[in-house]
Design a protein around this nucleic acid. Structure first.
Lengths: 375, 375
DNA sequence: TTGTACGCGTTATCAC
DNA sequence: GTGATAACGCGTACAA
């Protein structure tokens, strides 16, 4: 037995040397040769649930380890038509919530045994170039947190590539989507602020091409109109810190004074607005002006801000996207698209004057932020 | 001519139907059939710089478009031994500079015609599991912004997979690295603070396994000792906001009072420290206490903070990593490893009492942050 | 359970 | 410039 082992090891060592000499890769055939079995036996040993005898399995694995053999995913995907890769298309915005989204999605996808092929879009128009790569690399599916045109969507269907769109609402209802109800979120925020007596609103919106931001804005405006309040002053923004300051300035100029409340399309803009109001204009927040954001990014929770904002259930949404995509991949027959919609959680914070939700409901229950605990 | 075109289109349409019926993929062979050329001609048309006549090229491309043909990257990589994929291994820390790093690296890699296969590590110990995938997927190279053990490094060499390690210094000098001189950065910060009269230091360090943080700490401590100042109080941290507050409290307790300056292993911890000092303890910063961080993440530039910190030249470093990796991939013969070291830029900010660098040098030239410009 | 033979879709090599 | 043919490394029906 000891002799046999030694023989196997010497055989493997020789084989390795010859492979290195020929500058080849280690293949299942090499392993088969060393283990003294057929190539298909080796293949079976690396397939979970295949029928292989204990002894064969052991011999093959020993040879594989000795040779540093690892199955070649490219060759495998050629024949199985599964690459085990998921493309993640994500716009590279100056939005702090994207990192969180990316981390969650990446983790969820990995947990399902798939790898992430990452495509970041500097501009939404880069989608064309990126999609060509997506087709080439034969990914099993795509999660897109970016705006796709109707033609793009059509191409996914033609090529039968499973697609889940994240946080973008599309007219096309045959696409699988995971979203937060941004329209309702906008309404909710306007309602809460109006209930606390705010009458004149300013809105620092997101970029025009962002469906998320426009949904939020539309919801807020709709509710403000319903309540018979004066129409809000709306200025554009680009999701970054500077846009908050610029936007506040523009709103004040347009209005000829400070509004009661400003709704910002993102937390970072809200923080920019807040800082400019407090540090540059000497406006008291929330005393003279209420400021609210969206997304509950980490800095919104910092003591200097404690922002009034709305949090999307990102981990749940990421898990939903991964689940949805997995299920489509596993049975592509299902024709009906699914639309999973989540609700945002209101974070009261301290940058807006608010009244408790209901007479009996204590504010704490409404979703108050847990204070930063020390020790 | 019109007839011919029509014929091609009808032929293509029929062919597409039969492909769909058989549930096959569109291959170069299908294109060849429709275009009336050989399969190898089709292949050549998709290889830049191959010798194909204008007419053949045109016919092939027309057929390809008609059939929605795209070359299969898996099959290609099988024969070319190039996957055109780069693995990015990155620890998923609560550190705000990781998103920036990820975005930069992703962009740089894409700009060089490679795709990014993303692996995020929740814990450093996940490296084993991740590396197995890296081998499987036959990536052309790896950029690792994570701690790799000596055995891991050895495996890269054995498998001849090009590797560039980002921001980790290794004893093993045969590994290609791109780093910032964190030791020098720590020294510089201590020097500047000491020059301004700070004597008693507190340090909120990073986690023990982080080479970056310990290098910074080592540099700072070394300089403090050189200058004959009292030994700093060092407490651990985990790079997050809370660690800054917890750390400050611990330092004050341990010292029985407030130190002159606190050096934090990251901006987020510095901000946590700052907020806790100002809002909870009523300590004036920088009046009573100077606070400095590392990394110059976006929030450090916000008006509420304007943090004294040090910025790594991230875009340059990312480009260097991508360049280095590309060059190794293109000529794997080169044996000598390269170590590209960059220097951090000092950002004066307003959370530390500082004296100008030199008698003649105006502070602005030293690397003052550009103020946030409105309009 | 095991081995044989074939195919996945492409590029590379060689004649023509 | 163009077309036949042989790899690339693996999974899988089929026969044994």
């Amino acid at each position: 037995m000891t002799t046999s082992k030694l023989t196997v090891e010497r055989c493997a060592a020789e084989h390795r040397a010859s492979i290195a000499r020929e500058n080849r890769r280690v293949t299942s055939y090499d392993v088969a040769l060393v283990a003294g079995v057929s190539q298909s036996a080796v293949s079976r040993c690396f397939k979970p649930g295949a029928s292989v005898s204990k002894t064969t399995h052991a011999r093959v694995m020993k040879a594989a380890v000795l040779l540093d053999y690892i199955p070649n995913a490219a060759a495998r995907s050629l024949i199985t038509r599964r690459s085990n890769m998921i493309a993640l298309i994500i716009t590279n915005q100056a939005n702090l919530y994207y990192p969180e989204l990316l981390a969650e999605l990446s983790q969820q996808i990995t947990a399902r045994g798939k790898r992430v092929l990452l495509f970041t879009l500097a501009r939404e128009s880069d989608a064309d170039r990126v999609l060509a790569d997506v087709w080439q690399f034969q990914v099993d599916g795509v999660i897109a947190a970016a705006s796709l045109s109707g033609e793009h969507i059509a191409e996914f269907k033609r090529r039968r590539v499973p697609l889940v769109v994240f946080n973008r609402t599309l007219r096309d209802h045959s696409v699988n989507t995971v979203t937060c109800d941004h329209h309702e979120t906008g309404r909710m925020l306007a309602s809460r602020l109006a209930a606390a007596g705010h009458r004149q609103f300013g809105i620092i919106a997101g970029t025009e091409d962002s469906v998320v931001a426009s949904e939020r804005r539309r919801g807020a405006c709709e509710r403000i109109a319903e309540l018979g309040l004066p129409p809000p002053v709306i200025v554009p923004g680009e999701y970054d810190y500077r846009s908050g300051a610029v936007g506040l300035k523009a709103i004040i100029e347009q209005l000829g004074g400070v509004p009661d409340a400003i709704i910002c399309g993102s937390d970072v803009m809200a923080i920019g607005c807040l800082d400019y109001a407090r540090h540059e204009l000497g406006i008291e927040v929330p005393g003279q002006l209420s400021v609210a954001g969206f997304d509950a990014v980490e800095p919104s929770n910092w003591l200097s801000y404690n922002l009034t904002t709305l949090r999307q259930p990102m981990p749940k949404m990421a898990a939903a996207a991964a689940d949805l995509l997995s299920s489509i991949i596993d049975r592509p027959d299902a024709d009906e698209a699914e639309r999973r919609v989540f609700n945002a959680q209101f974070i009261e914070g301290a940058t807006a004057r608010l009244t408790p939700v209901g007479p009996a409901a204590p504010t704490v229950a409404a979703g108050m932020r847990a204070p930063v605990a020390i020790m």
